[in-house]
Amino acid sequence: MKSIYFLPLFLLTMTNDAFSQSGKTYILVHGAWHGAWCWDKVIPLVQARGHKAIAVDLPGHGHDTGRTSDISLDDYVNEVVKTVNAQNGQVILVGHSMSGIVISQAAEKLGRKKISALVYLDAFLPRDGESLFALVDATLKNLTPNSRKPMLVENLIVSEDHKTNSVNPAMVAEIFYHDCAEEDKEFALPRISKEPIAPLATPLHLTDDVYGMIPKYYILCTESRDMDKTFLSTHVPCKKVYKLASSHSPFFSMPEKLVDILNEVK
């Protein structure tokens, strides 16, 4: 966390409104089992560049874990849409992992008037009619002999009612945070939550006229151990594909390099 602690004090005390007057606005959406807390290192670094950054807690995550099993994809999307509509002007939507499907469906609802770009951080990048589960199947089928072993699939634990899943606690650190500092692991591991299954099984409704017209950027984490997403980075045309030699969690392991990339996105 040194990079945060040594930022000039005035940068940390300025409000997001001040940043937004001349900079860009980033809406940061966490992946499965995580929460807005995973962006804690990223937000002050984005602000230090003169931009605004808002991390969203999707329903059932972060500070909202009281309700999980009956959450839908619409619930996720509506939370993002509400956050975006509360901002002045256009925003850049950044989705990590699972939330690639969330930002895609939200962008379809919001359109180019509100969304200037979509950034997929080692995320699921969908076409019309696909669900996250369908994307997982396609990704597994397109793994090459040189692909890393997809550790996540074999370490999922499904609840008895089949409404939520979780990750094998003994493997979470290895799957998500293998290159992260011990203090980051100690921060993240107690905050990992259950994930509703319904949003993952819901097909998306996307159109060429709306979703297809919004510029897309992909950040591929080349050392990610959950699942090699090389296939996904080419699944839908992107304006640019970046590569980070990081785990699935560069917001912890290399936040400065991640923010360097985000800063390039128009």
Rank of each mutant, 00 (worst) to 15 (best):
residue 173 A to H: 02
residue 118 L to F: 05
residue 131 S to A: 13
residue 174 E to H: 11
residue 156 L to A: 04
residue 176 F to M: 14
residue 171 M to P: 05
residue 165 N to M: 15
residue 128 D to W: 01
residue 106 A to Y: 06
residue 124 F to S: 06
residue 164 T to R: 01
residue 145 P to T: 11
residue 155 N to K: 07
residue 125 L to A: 11
residue 124 F to Q: 10
residue 156 L to W: 07
residue 154 E to S: 00
residue 167 V to M: 08
residue 140 L to V: 12
residue 109 K to M: 06
residue 129 G to L: 07
residue 143 L to W: 04
residue 171 M to V: 08
residue 148 R to C: 01
residue 175 I to R: 03
residue 153 V to I: 13
residue 154 E to L: 02
residue 108 E to I: 01
residue 164 T to S: 09
residue 137 D to F: 00
residue 130 E to I: 01
residue 160 E to R: 15
residue 154 E to M: 00
residue 121 L to H: 04
residue 116 S to E: 13
residue 135 L to H: 12
residue 145 P to K: 07
residue 131 S to W: 05
residue 151 M to K: 11
residue 154 E to A: 14
residue 159 S to L: 07
residue 155 N to L: 08
residue 140 L to P: 15
residue 122 D to H: 15
residue 133 F to D: 05
residue 175 I to G: 04
residue 156 L to V: 09
residue 139 T to A: 07
residue 111 G to L: 11
residue 163 K to V: 07
residue 124 F to Y: 15
residue 107 A to L: 03
residue 148 R to K: 15
residue 126 P to D: 03
residue 138 A to W: 03
residue 142 N to M: 04
residue 169 P to A: 00
residue 174 E to R: 03
residue 151 M to C: 10
residue 152 L to E: 08
residue 135 L to W: 06
residue 136 V to C: 14
residue 144 T to K: 13
residue 128 D to G: 10
residue 150 P to R: 06
residue 117 A to C: 01
residue 176 F to G: 06
residue 116 S to L: 10
residue 120 Y to H: 05
residue 166 S to P: 06
residue 165 N to C: 09
residue 127 R to Y: 04
residue 143 L to C: 11
residue 160 E to N: 15
residue 154 E to D: 12
residue 135 L to A: 10
residue 152 L to P: 10
residue 166 S to W: 10
residue 128 D to M: 03
residue 118 L to V: 05
residue 166 S to M: 12
residue 146 N to V: 11
residue 176 F to W: 11
residue 174 E to I: 13
residue 115 I to S: 03
residue 117 A to Y: 01
residue 126 P to F: 00
residue 157 I to D: 06
residue 134 A to E: 12
residue 161 D to N: 13
residue 137 D to R: 09
residue 125 L to T: 15
residue 146 N to F: 11
residue 163 K to C: 10
residue 141 K to S: 12
residue 137 D to L: 00
residue 134 A to Q: 14
residue 163 K to S: 06
residue 110 L to I: 05
residue 135 L to D: 08
residue 148 R to E: 02
